[in-house]
C-alpha cells in the first residue's frame, strides 16, 4: 500500500523567549489511503502541531512531509494555499464556517476559491450526504453545533481531497451529536474511500479508528492498528 502522507524525521520547535518548546521530536509516520487515523495523547503532546505540519498549515523546523508524493514541507505559501483548497479538507472544533454565507455557499467555497464554476447541485448532493437536505439556504447562526460540523465535513469532502484533517471535530458537541459526526467521517472512509486524520481526546473516536497514534512528549508512544468496532 502507498502512503498518502509521509512524515520523516519531523521536528517542530517553538521559541518562547529564551525557552525552546519541542512540540514534535524527530517523528516518523506513514499514513495509508482509505483509512481513519486517530491521533490522541495528553494536552501538549504535539497532536495539533502534528496535524498542522501534516496539513501544510505549519512548517516543520526540520524533516519532511510528503502528501500524495509531493513534498509539502518545501512549498512556498502560495503553493501551499492552492494545495489546501484542492487537495486537503479541514474540520475544526468550532468556527468552521463563514457566518455570512449560507450552508451551500460555505460548502462550495473551496471550489469557488479555486476558480471553478458554481455548482449548486453538487453542493446539495453533498449536504444531503451529511444529512442536511433542505438546509442549504440556512446560515450557520441558524444551525445547531452538530449541523454546523456536518456542513464543515461536507465542505471538507467536496473537493474529494487526498486527506481530510479534523482537529477535535466532536470536542464541542454532546455525546449523541458527536456520535453522528463520527459516523459521517467513518462513512466517508468506508463508502467513499476518503482518508481521514482526526486529532481527538475522545475515546469514542479512537475506538472507531482504523489506527490510533498515541503521542507523548512530541513522539509516537503507541501505534495501534485496530479493527474498528
Amino acid at each position: 500500500m502507498d502512503a498518502v502522507l509521509e512524515l520523516t524525521h519531523v521536528t517542530r520547535t517553538y521559541r518562547h523567549g529564551p525557552h525552546a518548546v519541542h512540540a514534535l521530536r524527530d517523528l516518523d509516520a506513514r499514513l495509508y489511503a482509505h483509512s481513519l487515523t486517530a491521533v490522541t495523547g495528553p494536552s501538549g503532546s504535539g497532536k495539533s502541531t502534528l496535524l498542522q505540519c501534516a496539513a501544510g498549515l505549519d512548517r516543520p523546523t526540520s524533516g519532511t512531509v510528503r502528501l500524495a508524493g509531493r513534498e509539502i514541507s518545501a512549498m512556498g505559501e502560495r503553493e501551499l494555499t492552492r494545495l489546501r483548497r484542492a487537495r486537503i479538507g479541514f474540520v475544526f472544533q468550532s468556527f468552521n464556517l463563514l457566518p455570512t454565507l449560507t450552508a451551500q455557499e460555505n460548502v462550495l467555497l473551496p471550489l469557488r476559491l479555486d476558480g471553478r464554476r458554481r455548482d449548486p447541485v453538487r453542493a446539495r448532493r453533498m449536504l444531503a450526504r451529511v444529512g442536511l437536505d433542505g438546509r442549504a439556504d440556512a446560515r450557520p447562526g441558524e444551525l445547531s453545533g452538530g449541523q454546523q460540523q456536518r456542513v464543515a465535513i461536507a465542505r471538507a469532502l467536496i473537493t474529494e481531497p487526498d486527506v481530510v484533517f479534523a482537529d477535535e471535530p466532536t470536542g464541542a458537541l454532546d455525546q449523541d451529536t458527536a456520535a453522528g459526526v463520527l459516523e459521517l467521517l467513518r462513512e466517508a472512509v468506508g463508502e467513499h474511500g476518503a482518508t481521514v486524520v482526526v486529532v481527538t481526546h475522545d475515546p469514542a473516536v479512537a475506538a472507531r479508528a482504523d489506527r490510533v497514534l498515541r503521542l507523548a512528549d512530541g513522539r509516537i508512544a503507541h501505534d495501534t492498528v485496530g479493527v474498528p468496532a
Binding site: 498549515l57 505559501e77 502560495r78 494555499t81 492552492r82 489546501r84 483548497r85 484542492a86 479541514f90 468556527f95 468552521n96 463563514l98 457566518p99 467555497l109 473551496p110 476559491l113 479555486d114 465542505r155
Partner: peptide, 16 residues
C-alpha cells in the same frame, strides 16, 4: 482576523 484566517485555511490566497 478570524474570518480572513478561516478563508485562508480553506484555500483563499492573500490576494483573494
Amino acid at each position: 482576523l478570524r474570518e480572513f484566517s478561516l478563508l485562508r485555511t480553506v484555500g483563499a490566497e492573500k490576494r483573494q
